[in-house]
Design a binder for these strands. Sequence first.
DNA 1: CCGAACGTTAACCTCAACGTCAGGGTCGAA
DNA 2: TTCGACCCTGACGTTGAGGTTAACGTTCGG
Lengths: 171, 171
Amino acid sequence: MVEAATPTEDTPRDEDERAAARYQIGEVAERTGVTQRTLRFYEEKGLLRPSDRMEGGFRLYSENDIERITQIRGMQQLLGLTLAEIKEMVEAEELRAQMRATFRPDRELPARKARTEKIIDAVRRQLTIVETKLHALEAMQHELAERLATVEARRQQIIDAMETGQPLPDN
Amino acid sequence: MVEAATPTEDTPRDEDERAAARYQIGEVAERTGVTQRTLRFYEEKGLLRPSDRMEGGFRLYSENDIERITQIRGMQQLLGLTLAEIKEMVEAEELRAQMRATFRPDRELPARKARTEKIIDAVRRQLTIVETKLHALEAMQHELAERLATVEARRQQIIDAMETGQPLPDN
DNA sequence: CCGAACGTTAACCTCAACGTCAGGGTCGAA
DNA sequence: TTCGACCCTGACGTTGAGGTTAACGTTCGG
């Protein structure tokens, strides 16, 4: 890493709300373990739009964006969702961020409520997916543990037979 | 289902060890929910060789084969393993079946022991994969539960504000 | 022994999720 | 202002996991 094109690498320190650190695609790729191509691809698919660009068009990712990346990866690998499915979830997440940002209009409470409920629904759906998978995996775990136990017992029988002399038990 | 070409549909009942029921590909597909194409494809990839064929070449699957199919599916969908990876696991499983079948040669205990240990290794590997995923999923579950709680709290605040009059709390 | 239902192989197609160039632009330090 | 490291878009290639179609063979009840 030769740090040729270093972006606005200011750590967010002084003042109230600084222009938080932004990273360009190379660093993001390195930090998250996904390739640059994959990041661009996710963007293409509407899953992750880097929060900014430089003058010349270089992508700039925020810390937040990075979190999203790992979130996406988790959904892909842990839950086995397709990118299309993930996109839906992510869009709900988008709403959430958007709401946080909305500077408290206080009028239009019903609209806020509606959006909140949309988010709640989305999170609930995610949660049930996760829990379903969890149960299935627990079942799998038990089955494997059992299998392991019996095979290990079998091994022990063999070892005993080898040591004592001959009589391999009938089962 | 018109049962035109019905295979040896004898339920294993009389005698000691009958030639257990065998099903042809259509029925297997229906029962397992995977397509015929997929079954043939798995065979092509060496994941699942139907235990028999009819004279004319029709595939005949055993109850055991069917179990294997659901096993494969589980590994694919729950664990997100590739068919290549699953093949490895399945091959260990093959060993196990083979051992069961070996009519107790009693000589060559060391060989039996070696094979048993191979199986144990394989099962252990599967188990750690499962457990890793399980942990990751639990983490995800917690995170989602938290998120849900905060969003639900937010909604409650909005509802309160709507009912009482105006003061949306500061956070 | 015939026909409907079922099965066979072989070849080609699709779709998602990237990988891999090619050709060119941008950034920042010297 | 130039150089090396870095990034851009666009287009085509690849891989995994099957779907689809064609042309033909098998089973078995009537």
